[in-house]
């Protein structure tokens, strides 16, 4: 069953379909070119109908991240690969034991990745190309660079660790919260750290004083999180409605209820906030996509429901192109 949304204004005719040819696990824009990260082996670059495939891994691609200039991927071949707009892949690291690289993060200054209980950072300016590493108490669930300062947040079982790779003598800060933390994100203003948990909830810390925020009520695990412009809100997947937590005030969402928008018949599987406007692109498990205005919940139908869940969603930096992909390998780019 899919939502008809027959009365909703529609831009569905603007979709330019892209034949991904395999599950799309992530998508990122490098300039105006969309880089679709496929479940196995390759990236598909697409711009206005011109496409090229670039092989990056000898197997499954387990993780991908981008800083807008390059896409970094981790694979089940134990490799970390970076690829820029010119499309030349560079192998940044190969795990000696060929362990899975299933978490990655990237900024202009460094690349981070994780194999099991170890997290690694390689600064871009590193002359010896030797990565620094840290051992965690359990497997790494998520990695995120702080927006300012050279600091890496690492989610794991029973909390998150904040690590300064440039200060080997400084003891990493440990933020404790019982349970398994599977993803982590800093608010773009650097004031809050939020993790997604195994238990269908988010946990957050206000970094200045370590105050806790519990954000619960989801139907399933939250696998997609996106910060609105100016870090005013955090929108999430994991329910049949778009759940938007307020982060504008100094207390963030503490003691406040989230906004719930755009109810669908299926759960939301991917979200991507517009880079400039108070709008969020929302992808559902039946393949439907909406553009939802966060202020009043006004909707535009971007893609009608089909079959396969939306698994990847991203805006370009200018906010006039939206790329999406599904688990079944359907993909497309919408120009606004």
């Amino acid at each position: 069953m899919s939502d008809a949304r027959t009365d909703t204004p529609s831009i569905t005719e603007r979709i330019r379909p892209v034949a991904a040819g395999g599950a799309v696990v992530a998508v990122h824009f490098l300039g105006d070119e969309a880089a679709f990260v496929l479940g196995e082996e390759s990236l598909l670059f697409w711009r206005d109908g011109a496409e090229r495939r670039v092989a990056v891994h000898g197997g499954g691609i387990l993780a991908a991240a981008s800083d807008g200039r390059r896409v970094v991927t981790g694979g089940d071949d134990g490799k970390v690969v970076a690829i820029d707009a010119k499309g030349a892949p560079e192998t940044i690291a190969t795990d000696a034991k060929r362990r899975w690289v299933d978490r990655v993060a990237v900024t202009a200054d460094a690349v981070a990745w994780a194999c099991g209980k170890q997290a690694f950072v390689l600064p871009s300016k590193s002359k010896d190309k030797a990565a620094r590493s840290i051992e965690l108490p359990s497997s790494v669930g998520g990695l995120a660079f702080a927006p300012k300062g050279f600091r890496l947040a690492i989610a794991h079982y029973n909390g998150a660790t904040l690590w300064f790779p440039n200060a080997p003598d400084a003891k990493p800060e440990f933020l404790e919260w019982k349970g398994s933390h599977l993803d982590v994100t800093f608010s773009p203003d650097g004031r809050f750290l939020v993790t997604a948990m195994q238990e269908a909830m988010l946990h957050g810390w206000r970094l200045v004083d370590g105050k806790h925020m519990r954000m619960s009520g989801y139907a399933t695990k939250v696998r997609s999180l996106t910060w609105g412009p100016g870090a005013k809100w955090l929108a999430t997947s994991g329910a049949t409605q778009l759940v938007v937590w307020p982060f504008a005030g100094k207390d963030g969402p503490m003691g406040k209820a989230p906004k719930v928008l755009s109810p669908g018949e299926q759960r939301i599987s991917a979200v991507a906030a517009h880079p400039k406007q108070e709008v969020c692109a929302v992808g559902y498990e039946d393949g439907m996509m909406l553009l939802t205005r966060v202020e009043d919940g006004a909707e535009v139908l971007a893609r009608p429901g089909a079959k396969s869940p939306i698994s990847a969603l991203a805006w370009n930096e200018a906010g006039n192109r939206l790329a999406f992909g599904t688990e079944d390998g359907e993909a497309g780019v919408i120009s606004l």
Binding site: A23, E40, D76, D102, K178, Q198
Partner: peptide, 23 residues
């Protein structure tokens, strides 16, 4: 954390099966 003391899972299996589904 669901109030059930004997409810334990293999966290590594969850990740691995998720990853295997890429293939």
């Amino acid at each position: 954390n669901n109030g059930c003391i004997c409810c334990t899972v293999r966290g590594d299996l969850i990740r691995i099966i998720d990853g295997l589904m890429r293939r």
